[in-house]
Every structure is written in C-alpha cells, then in structure tokens.
Design a protein around this nucleic acid. Structure first.
Lengths: 361, 361
DNA sequence: TTGTAGGCGTTATCAC
DNA sequence: GTGATAACGCCTACAA
C-alpha cells in the first residue's frame, strides 16, 4: 500500500537500527558487517520492499549505467534487428538501453545524440546520416565517452560494426556479369542520406567497370515511389534495356518485382533482380529473392560487445567487417537475347546457375 | 580538449561571478535576474560548453524524464513499429525512451519490468506474456507510476492501446464463410504466450460457430516450423481437407503459402489464406495477401500519448480500440468442390469477391 | 564492526 | 535581484 515509492536506504537503516553506511555496506556486500546487523538490514530491506535508486547511485558514482542508441528508424527491420541485438547483448550487463530515432534526418541526428549525451549515457551506439559531419559525435569522443558505430565504414576515432558494402556489391556485380548481363541498374532509396546505399552503388559500379561493362544506371527514387508500385513502374519504364537491377535493399527488390509485373515483365526471364540485407521473407517468396545476406542482429551484438569491453577498461579495437553471404534465390537468370542488351547477344551465354558464395568483406 | 565532462552549474556561476542559485535561475528562465548578470551567466555557460546534468536534475526533481518500454522482441516488425510510434510521439516531449525485450519469456518479462522500474522511470509502456499475472506491473500501479499497455485487451487498473483481435478475427471468419468455406484452420505460433494469438483464435472460433460451421482446426507450431517451409509442409499435410487457413500473423501466412506450394497446392485455388497485421510487403507480393490491416505505429503513438497526458496530471482514460481494416488481397477464393469440404459442394456457391471492410473494433 | 559527514549536480527556500 | 543553504539518495572516506 505504499503510496509513492519513498523507501530509501535511510529508511532501511532506521528500521534495522543502524547507520546508513552499514546498511549500504550490507546491501552492497562491500565492507564488513556482523552477522547480526547483516540479518537485520536484509530483513528490513525485504520487509520495506527497498530497492536502490538508480539516480542516487548514478549521481554518486558518476555512471548512469545507461547506453544511448541512435538509429534512423525502427520501422526499418534492419535497424530494429540491430537494436534487438544490442539489447540482447546488454542483457544482464546491468546497462540499460536508451533509444532514439532520427528518421533519416541529419539535423535530428545530431540533436538526438546531444539529447542522449545530456542524459549522461555512459556510452553511445549510433547509425547516422553523416557521422563524419556530426559535431555531437565528436563531442562524445572528446568527452571520452565510448562510441561504437553500426553499419558505417571504419572512421578515424571510432570503432564500428559493419559489413563491407562495397565488396558485397561487387559480388552482386560479378553474379550479374557471370550470367551475361551488360546493361544493369542500381535502384536506390534515400541515396543522399545513406552511406550504405552509396557504398553499394560504388562497389557495383567499380566491379562493372573492372569487368569492362557499361556503367550501371543509377535509379534514385523517393518514399512515394517505393511504396506505390504503379509509380515505380513508371520510373522503371523510363529505363528500358536493363536486364538486371540491383536494389539497395530487399524491400525495394520486392517492390521492384511488383512494378515489373505491372509492366508485364517476368522475373527473372525478362529482368533479373537482386536485393540486399537478406530479410527472411525473401526466402519464402514464390520466387525466392537473390540477395546479400547479412545479420543486423550480429552487428548490434558486436557493437554492444565493443562498448562493454571499453566500459570495462579495454582499449578500443576495430574488429574486421562482419561476413556476408550471397544467396542465389531464383530472381537471377541470363538475359534474354533480344530484350535489353541493345539487341546484341551476350558474348558468352553462361549456363551455370548462380552459385552461393560466402565472403568475409 | 575537455577531458571528462565536469562543467557544472557551479563552474558557470563562478565564471560569471555569481551564486549558483542565480545561475540556475538564469539558465532555467525561472525567477528574476538583472540583465547584467543574465548576460554574464549566459556567456559563461556558452563559453564553458555547459549543459545540465540530467541526473542532478532527476535527483532533485524526483523525475527522471524517462519512460520505460517493454516489448517481447524488436525482431518482430510489429513491435518494432509500435516502439517507433512511441518514440515518435515522445519526440520533443523531453522524455527519453528506455527499452527492454523479454523474448516472449514470462519470467524475463517481470524481471525486465523491475529493471526498468529500478531505473526510476516516470512511466511504463508494456506488452507482456501475461500482464494479468505480472507482479512488477502491479507494483508499478501501486507506486502510482502511469502505465499503458500495448496490444493487450483492456484490463482492470491499466489503460491499453489495442485493436479488438476477437472482432477482427470474426471478420476473417465471415469472409471465409461468405466464400463458402466450411473446413477451416487457424495457424498459430506461440499460442500459449500470446494473448493476441489466443484472442484471434477465439474470435475466429466463435464466429464459425455462430455461422453453424464446424470448429476450425487449431494448428500450433513452433519457431522451427515457422522458419522451415518443409517442416511446415509436413504439418500442413497432416490437416487435409481444410480449404481456408487463417494465420495468426502475416509472416506465418506467407510461410504457409510457401509450405502449400511444396505440397503442390495453389493459393487461392486449392487453399485460401488470410493473415493478420497488414505488413506492407503483403501488398507487394505476386499474390497480394488477404489480411487484417492494423497500425502498430498508431498503437505506439496512442500509448505514448496516454502516458504523456497522465504525466501532465490528466486522469487515466481508456480509449476505444483502434480500428482495423480487412484487406481483400488475392489469397482468398471459394473452395474448389471436391477438394477439402468432404466432397460436399458448398451450400451456396458465392460469386461475389471478398469486399474490403473497415471497422472500429 | 560501525556511524558520522561530505559531496555528487540541481533546484527551492528564504533571508538579505 | 541575489546568494547562501538545505535537501534529493547514495557511497566512501574517516573516525570511533
């Protein structure tokens, strides 16, 4: 029937008939205390339903036992899973997770980080629009607050948990090339605010060039097009001749197939499609999605682990990129001669199906 | 070059040549201060890069400006979206979100809630395995801490943000019946730990009975079956004769279709399928998924709003259930005579396609 | 073994 | 208008 929680260690001490210091020592198992007093304090604490005030503790120990986490959005399963990984890894460590979302807005990014910082978080995990430009991130570094990034490439002064987007994208390009595709495209959402998307394009482009193929078409779309297949179809129609498209994520890849259907194109016969991320639903589709499989959960876990180690006094170490895996799916096939490829027949019509590949970026 | 953040209001006061009380007043715009001092304090604060310590404030104001949130898992997009909604609604309110996941474990549920409580959260948002059995939840209530539930039906002593699962499930049953289905099934994952799943089954069952139809088969599966189509196919094969299956969520509905394909069954010709939640990908599939569309994001927003109102002194009010919407999709069709239905022809072969329906539970 | 006292950063109170 | 001072809940010297 306690109305407002107000049982402090002082109350316990009083009930146990001892000083607060003693009560503190007993309850924390620090220092010494006679079996007698120990008994009384523990009983009192139990009877009163005492529990420590995290705030009081934080004030005195100068550690909030709280870790701040910033991601663009939890509506994106990739980030949600990463946070789930962070959360799982933090379980039992005593640290709690404070989260914030920027909705892919660079200004909000910085503001959110400052908010987190002002909450006295002991460490920070972040995925941002532009970490290299973030003043708040620099501030955290200067303050000596351990920071781990997620999804970003290694960056001076910060450790990061990531997959090598460039290398993964090259792998997609190789798979396309292997099948004989020459005229390809890269479908991107939020290209300007996502270094992941940009890196994937960069790798894709680089590998195409390395293979002596034409530069892939960069097709940037907005939220609206991504969610409305008919609008995406219109855009897709403006890029005739492409025989294979690499979408910067699986959701886009699925939307892309929908748009293709609206145009009467079959996947993979009329157009090959590959995605990125490896979301589970991709495997369950009627035509399983070819994609780069990654594990956002593992990424979150690793980031959290990096932080915990630093919080225990360890030195910052940049781990290697997390591995990825090319999932063949069934959305890839050789281009159909006559469609796309400028009427030219593929130089060497390949017969082998795409092979599963595992890589460490 | 500040090494460890150590600039307190005391430093500002000193630099400005005034007392801490004055500095506090100026920085908080409370009380009065001469333009002169005000100027000096503000300059000093800016120069020193001062920012309030949330902990110091929390200790003195007895409010942590923190809201705890417990969900089963962020790997489930439904909960992730709900949390995103909470987060969005809290934006700018000054409250920060502390999150925790239970992984659908009842014991972990209670432990996590206690953890959150011990962090002095000012309010709590929770989705649990069994809120009615949670001691920690009761404790929060007794302590006078505002609590809002998400996804749960209204419950004595707590407000909740929810959709009427029973009513929504009845709608699915009606759509099935309307098409002439008699022998139906309900596919459930985590039936014992999800009141949502149980409520959906209850509503489905009730409506079937109300329509004089046979009880639907309850098909419970585990994680393993949900992720491995071949295993799900085996189970599905053990239930011949069903012409329509209601899956307790969209992911399951998609996995179900995959399993059906493995058995050589076509959807919807050989089997109708409906899901629940209304995830976006469902719309983009080659055969768009029939489902109950809900908005976890709106649910999260509402829960957060309820809390904010209470934190501002408002009385707890239980809002009506959030609306849902039956999305017709293309996975529903009349049963094929000769398959399933015990060879009997549907009593009144319906011709109308399923209609879109909007409801307020 | 035990208790008293000081301080962590803030704000509210209350004299001046 | 301003500035000491006393909490807030806790822990850690330091003293007894």
């Amino acid at each position: 029937m306690t109305h407002k929680s107000a049982i402090t260690i002082k109350d316990v001490a009083q009930a146990a008939g001892c000083g607060v210091a003693t009560a503190s020592r007993v309850l924390n198992n620090s220092g010494s205390a006679s079996a007698d007093v120990r008994e009384r304090v523990e009983t009192a604490a139990r009877d009163l339903g005492f529990s420590f005030s995290a705030i009081g503790r934080a004030l005195q120990s100068r550690r909030s036992m709280t870790i701040g986490c910033l991601v663009p959005s939890l509506a994106n399963p990739v980030f949600a899973e990463a946070v789930q990984g962070v959360q799982a890894e933090l379980q039992g460590s005593g640290y709690q997770l404070l989260i914030s979302c920027s909705n892919y807005d660079e200004a909000a990014d910085d503001a959110a980080l400052e908010m987190l910082l002002s909450k006295d978080t002991d460490a920070l995990i972040a995925t941002m629009v532009a970490p290299e430009r973030s003043a708040a991130l620099q501030l955290a570094g200067r303050r000596g607050i351990p920071v781990a990034l997620m999804f970003h490439d290694p960056m001076e002064g910060f450790v990061t948990s990531y997959v090598d987007n460039v290398e993964a994208a090259r792998e997609v390009a190789r798979q396309f090339a292997r099948l004989g595709h020459r005229r390809t495209g890269f479908l991107a959402l939020r290209f300007s605010t996502s270094d992941r998307s940009r890196n994937r394009y960069a790798g894709f482009l680089a590998e195409c060039r390395a293979g002596g193929l034409p530069d892939p078409a960069l097709i940037e779309i907005g939220e609206a097009e991504a969610r409305q297949p008919d609008r995406l179809a219109v855009i897709l129609g403006q890029h005739p001749g492409l025989t294979a498209i690499f979408a910067s994520n699986d959701f886009l890849a699925i939307a892309l197939q929908n748009a293709a259907r609206l145009l009467g194109w079959r996947v993979p016969q009329d157009m090959s499609v590959a995605g990125f991320d490896g979301i589970e639903i991709g495997r369950l589709l009627e035509v399983p999605l070819a994609t780069i499989e990654t594990s956002p959960e593992a990424m979150g876990r690793q980031a959290a682990r990096l932080l915990l180690e630093r919080l225990q006094g360890g030195a910052p170490v940049q781990p290697p990129a997390l591995s990825f895996h090319f999932r063949a799916g069934a959305t890839l096939a050789p281009p159909t001669p006559g469609k796309g490829d400028d009427g030219r027949v593929a130089a060497q019509p390949p017969s082998a199906p795409p092979a599963e590949t595992a890589q460490q970026g």
